[in-house]
């Protein structure tokens, strides 16, 4: 056990799985970097944010493949390789670039197993960074996990901390289905204790990061940390919260969510993706349908407005859910009382 950053946790997961299984390969733009450069320095970048640094040195060019800037072909190649014996982990850099290769994910990899009558296995992982908070503007800041969650055949992972990232990524690599693994780009330097040995965290099993009696908060990815901070502050006001990190949006651990709502009767959902047809609407629909009787207050969603992500810091801050916005939402549902019928 030692302190590791989100970046290191992911790097370690990749490294340990590549050691364990020679079929695991990684590919992407500048996952090593330096090829064709004039200095001869290899592994010049190790990923645009240094997440795959050092893997080239240990595993060599056959297993750490730098690609041309050609997402449709290399993401498709990863799907094809997965269906034929390798276990590729392809890095899409910014998830926004899925615009360039969605067909290979949505119509190819995701569909093989069902369409081919259960005869295919596509053990593919696509890693990409998501999220606002970097002033990266409209084409580099989206939180597109709902897009993938919408597509049957894909599994979708949104880790909320370094510990979670390592265990979930190892699980993703060992999983026999196509998995989209989304890393919040603002979190790479966050640190916590992470075991040195490999471990897995199963998909579809939510993590209760805290338990309370008054309000249930369901939050995704980076928002889990925000929700816990809000819950800390609300505790001092006498409002006690349960915080649920679903870990994977597909499969979704609906059982845990429903159990917690049955206990608290009040629900706030925090989701940094665009508000229409996002995970917050999905969870709200689940609870409205399955736990209507338990609800003591309207469900509240803390989500961005229905706009692209703006560039300027002041607008980006307004755009994103915040600890304060979560607190306000929790207070309002905690205070809500059903009107007595007259």
């Amino acid at each position: 056990m030692s302190k590791k950053s989100f970046r290191q946790a992911i790097n370690e997961a990749l490294r340990q799985e590549m050691r364990r299984d020679p079929r695991v390969i990684i590919m992407g733009e500048d996952v090593a970097g330096g090829r064709g450069g004039t200095s001869g320095v290899q592994d010049a970048w190790g990923g645009v944010l240094g997440v795959t640094k050092g893997l080239l040195t240990e595993f060599g060019e056959d297993r750490v493949l730098d690609t041309p800037i050609s997402e449709a072909s290399y993401i498709g190649a990863a799907a094809g390789a997965a269906a034929t014996g390798l276990r590729p982990v392809a890095e899409l850099m910014f998830v926004d670039f899925v615009g360039c290769c969605l067909d290979q994910i949505m119509n190819q990899a995701a569909k093989f197993r069902y369409m081919f009558g259960g005869k295919a296995r596509t053990p593919l992982v696509i890693r990409a960074m998501y999220g606002a908070g970097f002033n990266a503007a409209a084409q580099h800041s989206q939180a597109l996990y709902p897009l993938f969650t919408h597509i049957p055949g894909l599994k979708v992972v949104v880790p909320s901390s370094p510990y979670e990232a390592k265990g979930l990524l190892i699980q993703a690599i060992r999983d026999d289905d196509p998995v989209i693994f989304l890393e919040n780009k603002v979190m790479y330097d966050e640190e916590e204790d992470v075991p040195d040995d490999p471990y897995t965290i199963p998909f579809g099993e939510a993590n209760l990061t805290r338990e309370g009696n008054d309000v249930t908060i369901v939050a995704f990815g980076r928002m889990v940390g925000f929700a816990n901070q809000a819950a800390d502050r609300l505790e001092k006001e006498g409002i006690s919260c349960t915080v649920i990190d679903p870990r994977t949006t597909s499969p979704l651990d609906s059982g845990t969510i429903l159990d917690c709502v049955a206990d608290t009767g009040r629900l706030v959902i925090v989701d940094e993706s665009s508000p229409r047809c996002n995970l917050a609407t999905d969870v709200a629909a689940l609870v409205a349908e399955e736990a209507f009787d338990a609800l003591k207050a309207p469900i509240r969603r803390v989500v961005p407005p229905h706009t692209p992500v703006p560039f300027a810091t002041i607008l980006e801050n307004l755009y994103l859910p915040s600890v304060e916005k979560i607190e306000a939402a929790v207070r309002s549902v905690a205070a809500y009382r059903v009107k007595e019928e007259v």
Partner: peptide
């Protein structure tokens, strides 16, 4: 260059 990769490799 495209980022850190030379065009002699990528093109």
């Amino acid at each position: 260059y495209g980022e850190a990769t030379g065009s002699s490799y990528a093109c």
